[in-house]
């Protein structure tokens, strides 16, 4: 047991005040630093950000270069990733929460998911390279990228969906059973709709992660110089982060300006997605409080 010295109350208060200030500044200083950094990017990139930049192809001349293929590639990639990963992740979450007995297999799956969620993304890239690009012969296609990305975000979707399902009150389930519903009827008609906003929040965050991931795409072989629009899931592609990386690594400062303009586009997308998810959660919480 620690021993406490008697201290005058006034000193107690001063110590507490100081402690509060120190902790608050520890919160605010890194945030300010980050805001300065983001502001720097914004100031550098904003002049380059115009319609021409958004609708042009990459070019050797920095002032002509644009991010059209990157935007389309990223959108296509994310769309496919969502189509593949969301049903798989949500149904795995349903099994874990609603069906599985808490036996050994359950705990093995749980540990596996927790660990997969923190496996470095570059390792998923190597998995995708060996299985999708080589073994299944998908080459450097959007589909190979999307499959790799799906594996990467699957654990996140499972974890957040499970939390969402878990938050559905016991009483609602009991009510369904009391009315004679089967288990799946209860899940499909009552539990899933109730948990839907929270599942959606998690899904949006996972999708945002997929938009920003760079390393797995490099390994799977996204290319940075593309002069056509990707139309089929089997075509070669580039993505926004890959384009940014390409511009950062060039020596001419004009390309760095392009990179910061592209970063503004990337961050705006993320911010929008995050805002949507926070808004949904806020609405849900408000609703829940009225129950």
């Amino acid at each position: 047991m620690p021993r406490y010295k008697r201290q005058p109350i006034a000193r107690h208060r001063i110590v507490d005040k100081l402690f509060f200030i120190v902790c608050l500044s520890a919160m605010i200083i890194p945030m300010l630093l980050l805001i300065i950094l983001l502001g720097d990017v914004l100031i550098t990139g904003i002049e380059r950000l115009n319609l021409n930049f958004l609708t042009s192809f990459p070019s050797r001349k920095p002032q002509n270069a644009g991010i059209l293929p990157a935007i389309l590639g990223s959108s296509y990639l994310v769309l496919l990733t969502g189509i593949i990963a969301l049903p798989l992740g949500i149904s795995a979450a349903i099994y874990m929460e609603e069906y599985s007995k808490k036996n050994r297999l359950y705990y093995i799956i749980e540990i596996t998911i927790a660990n997969l969620a923190s496996v470095p993304s570059i390792i998923y890239g190597m998995l995708g390279l060996t299985i999708f690009v080589r073994a299944l012969g998908l080459e450097r296609s959007i589909l190979a990228g999307a499959l790799t990305m799906s594996l990467l975000i699957l654990p996140i979707i499972i974890i957040t969906s499970r939390e969402a399902l878990h938050a559905v009150p016991r009483t609602i389930r009991d009510g369904c059973y009391a009315l004679g519903a089967t288990r799946w009827q209860m899940i499909w008609q009552i539990v899933l709709p109730t948990a839907f906003p929270n599942i959606l929040t998690g899904a949006i965050l996972a999708i945002a992660r997929a938009i920003g991931e760079t390393a797995p795409l490099i390994i799977v072989g996204a290319v940075s110089y593309i002069t056509f629009l990707p139309i089929s899931p089997f075509s070669e592609f580039t993505a926004l982060p890959i384009q940014i990386l390409n511009w950062i690594s060039r020596p001419q400062p004009e390309f760095a300006v392009n990179a910061s303009a592209a970063i503004i586009v990337l961050l705006t997308t993320m911010l929008l997605l995050n805002a949507i998810s926070i808004f949904i959660r806020y609405r849900v919480n408000k609703q829940r409080n009225n129950w």
Partner: peptide, 22 residues
């Protein structure tokens, strides 16, 4: 919410910070 948004900044952006600003 601010922290949550900051957690979503892609790492490529931090790479830009590190090389070209920091």
């Amino acid at each position: 919410p601010i922290i949550e948004i900051l957690a979503g900044i892609p790492t490529i952006v931090y790479g830009y910070f590190a090389l070209l600003i920091v």
